[in-house]
């Protein structure tokens, strides 16, 4: 990813910045400029909200091959997470035994290195998730 492209997405990558429709209250991640439901009515009434980073696993997969950025971490877990505010997102689950990853498990976001543009390019940081132990 180019440096400007990464830079534009920093608020959502670092802080899970989402949008909330001022009309119907729906939360979207990544943030939208217009609500899919309320359309024109929502223009100018979209607010920015940060997701708490708490959620649970809707489903997951253990990957044995995959994107170059993750190849040194394989096998690794990618999950669809439902955040407590509603939006679903896809992210890596780190620092866990694969046996402990279960559908419905509570997770929280952590700040991690997501990609490196070689040894001389920019380092991309962002959210990943870990299991919440009670």
């Amino acid at each position: 990813m180019s440096a400007p492209g990464y830079w534009r997405e920093i608020p959502q990558r670092y802080n899970l910045l989402a949008s909330r429709c001022g009309v119907c209250g729906d939360v979207d991640f990544p943030p939208r400029v217009m609500c899919q439901k309320c359309r024109r009515e929502s223009i100018g009434r979209m607010e920015r909200v940060g997701l708490s980073g708490r959620g649970n696993i809707v489903t997951y997969s253990i990957l044995h091959t995959g994107m170059p950025a993750f190849s040194d971490q394989k096998p690794y877990v990618i999950a669809i997470i439902e955040t407590e505010e509603g939006p679903r997102l896809t992210a890596q689950i780190v620092d866990c035994r694969h046996d402990d990853v279960k559908i419905g498990a509570n997770v929280k976001s952590v700040f991690r290195k997501v990609n490196e543009d070689g040894k001389e390019g920019i380092i991309s940081y962002g959210y990943k998730f870990t299991l919440v132990k009670e």
């Binding site: 991690r112 290195k113 997501v114 380092i123 940081y125």
Partner: peptide, 16 residues
Amino acid sequence: PGIDEDTATISVEAAR
């Protein structure tokens, strides 16, 4: 440190 951890990620987690 894990492959995806460095001084920045450790700093951010501690600060948060």
